[in-house]
Amino acid sequence: MSLLEVEHLHATYETIVALRDISFVVGQGEIVTLIGSNGAGKTTTLNTLCGLTPARSGSIRLAGERIEALPPHEIARRGVIQSPEGRKIFARLSVLENLEMGAFSRRDNRAVKRDLEDVLGRFPRLRERLHQPGGTLSGGEQQMLAIGRALMAKPRLLLLDEPSMGLAPIFVRDVFESLVALNKQGTTILLVEQNAHMALMIAHRAYVMQTGLITHSGDAKVLRKDPAIIRAYLGGA
């Protein structure tokens, strides 16, 4: 049984049909990536997984338990944590408070303190700015904060929505390296990305979405070499 099983998910966003019939799985310890162009429904998929958008039909199973009807905070408490598109850090809260918000649903205070040290160790620049408001950080730092915040929740399943968006290439590399390191330590990751190149580099498996449907799926290494994918998402030959 995989960690996450999505079957025939159908969702609408306002009046648009965003997801038409999505099915995919994410196994424990994997990095799975969802790639596709803008408007394909990737963000809606993540939002539906997290309970922000209601699912019209279909099922979402987390380690066997059906979660599609649960409210967002319940899903977060079960370890499904999203780092949203555009980072969405709390600009008026300090860096420290942002990280503490990440651990909101946890009750084990001592372990939270340890994880805080871990995160700050992983992203030393955050420690420098610990008491500054989140809005004063640069883009790259904010992304680190967003990931750090997500990590503070000790996620079973980490969802990332376009972590590379708006970042300079050097930061993009940093971010993806951190993701790989995280995964090596055991965190399962579902990554949504427009930057298909990097995503396919680090992922184990990949799904390609287009206008609400999954059009291709398979091993990431295989898809990297698929000419159709290369033409569509990897910038030609």
Binding site: C50, H73, A76, R77, K88, F90, R92, E97
Partner: peptide, 24 residues
Amino acid sequence: TKSGKAMRAVAEDRNTAALMGVNV
């Protein structure tokens, strides 16, 4: 307090706070 922090978070961005496990 933690509850107050949650209030400030919800005041700023309701959906993201929900993603953190806050019962909005």
